[in-house]
Simulated scan of single mutants.
Amino acid sequence: MLRSALKPRHLGLLAVALLIVLAFVQLGRWQLGVAEDEALRESLEKARTQQPVAIESVLRPHIDFPNDLSTRPVSATGTFGSDQVIVAGRRLDGRAGFWVVAPLRVAVSGATLPVLRGYVSSPDEAPPVPSGTVTVTGGLAPPESPYAGPPPPEGQLGSIDTSVLVSRWPGELYNAFVFQQGETPAPTAAATGSMVRVPTPSGDTGFKWRNAAYALQWWVFALFALYLWWRTVRHDVEEAGDNGQRDRDEPADERPA
């Protein structure tokens, strides 16, 4: 069969088949990208249409974080404690930096809610917490896993781990934190300095299975192109074998001189 596959005609057909396979594989990858982009777009649009709800209406202190609350817009009214923490090893728009996380004592529950106020490129740029009663809004997130990397610098944390924060901030603690997006009264530019808000992650975007099925369809077509080439070579081998068999079966006196 190898001898037949190496015939110029079959090599030419193989080249055409490989070009078709490459095109179909790329079309399949494009459809997968469409599936992911559509899911992300729908997730972001859904998040934008949701109005913030009071934190105490969806979550209680010390309760395990429900997965369906991830990225849910919430609001919380209270006063900030001065013991804010710096979380090392964070990135924003490709830049290395730090997160500024402060304890908000929620007025209704009296429990502390960790609030990710923003990102700074240096710990020295972290602005002081606002004074008085404030209302913060932002996306809700579960606490991060315990930090297992190299020890961060003195006075900094490696993750927003509520099992660590509960020993640092007295009283009850929400088993969650908020990606702060807004604040009332609105702070002045001088009050926030160079700190930048950290966008709420999009969370679980799901998957657009229709486009994924289209991707699979293109890849099946790619395999079918290779199968057709193989069948062409196989047919040529079988035809050659039949011709050889007929030559052996034909009487010698009937064979062409």
Rank of each mutant, 00 (worst) to 15 (best):
Tyr214Arg: 10
Tyr174Thr: 03
Ala54Arg: 10
Leu44Ile: 15
Ala213Tyr: 03
Leu19Ala: 15
Glu56Thr: 03
Asp253Met: 09
Glu42Ala: 06
Ala35Val: 10
Thr184Trp: 00
Pro170Trp: 01
Ala222Gln: 00
Leu113Gln: 08
Leu6Asn: 03
Glu38Phe: 11
Arg255His: 15
Gln84Tyr: 13
Asp236Trp: 01
Arg210Lys: 13
Pro201Gln: 07
Gly158Leu: 05
Leu18Val: 12
Thr112Cys: 03
Thr200Ser: 09
Thr184Arg: 04
Glu45Val: 08
Ile86Cys: 11
Arg231Leu: 10
Val101Leu: 01
Ile160Gly: 05
Arg105Tyr: 03
Glu254Ser: 13
Phe177Thr: 00
Gly203Asn: 13
Leu19Pro: 06
Leu19Phe: 13
Arg48Asn: 14
Asp236Ser: 05
Val196Gln: 13
Asp64Met: 09
Leu69Val: 09
Ala212Met: 04
Ala35Met: 08
Leu11Trp: 07
Ala107Arg: 12
Asn67Glu: 11
Leu228Gln: 05
Ser122Pro: 02
Asn175His: 08
Phe224Asn: 04
Ala23Arg: 13
Thr200Gly: 08
Phe98Cys: 04
Val101Tyr: 02
Glu144Pro: 02
Val198Leu: 01
Leu157Ser: 01
Asp64Lys: 01
Phe98Ala: 04
Asp253Pro: 10
Gly171Met: 05
Gln50Arg: 12
Phe221Gln: 02
Glu38Arg: 14
Gly203Lys: 11
Ala96Leu: 11
Ala257Val: 14
Thr77Val: 15
Ala148Thr: 11
Leu14Met: 10
Asp204His: 06
Ala111Gly: 02
Thr49Ser: 15
Val85Cys: 15
Glu250Trp: 07
Arg105Gly: 03
Pro128Ser: 08
Ala88His: 07
Ala15Asn: 00
Pro128Thr: 13
Ala148Leu: 13
Arg95Lys: 14
Ser109Tyr: 06
Arg210Glu: 14
Gln181Pro: 10
Thr49Cys: 07
Thr188Glu: 13
Gly97Gln: 01
Val136Glu: 00
Leu18Asp: 02
Ala186His: 11
Phe221His: 06
Ala215Met: 08
Trp219Asn: 00
Gly149Met: 12
Gly78Met: 07
Glu38Ala: 12
Lys46Phe: 10
Glu36Phe: 05
Leu69Met: 08
Ala15Glu: 03
Glu250Leu: 15
Thr192His: 13
Gln84Ala: 13
Val87Gly: 00
Asp93Ala: 10
Val34Ser: 09
Ala141Asn: 07
Pro130Met: 07
Glu254Trp: 08
Ser82Val: 05
Ala102Met: 14
His62Met: 10
Ile63Thr: 15
Gly203Met: 09
Leu59Met: 13
Asp68Gly: 05
Pro153Gly: 14
Leu19Glu: 01
Pro201Tyr: 01
Val178Ser: 03
Trp30Met: 09
Ser82Asp: 14
Glu42Pro: 00
Asp242Met: 11
Pro170Ile: 04
Leu173Cys: 09
Gly206Arg: 03
Glu154Asp: 13
Gly171Glu: 06
Pro142Ser: 12
Pro52Ile: 08
Val58Met: 09
Ala5Gly: 04
Thr162Asn: 13
Pro256Arg: 14
Trp209His: 12
Gly78Ser: 14
Ala39Pro: 03
Leu216Gly: 06
Gly33Gln: 04
Arg255Met: 15
Arg246Cys: 08
Thr188Tyr: 08
Pro143Gly: 11
Arg72Asn: 04
Lys7Cys: 02
Ala215Glu: 14
Val25Pro: 02
Ala212Ser: 10
Pro256Phe: 12
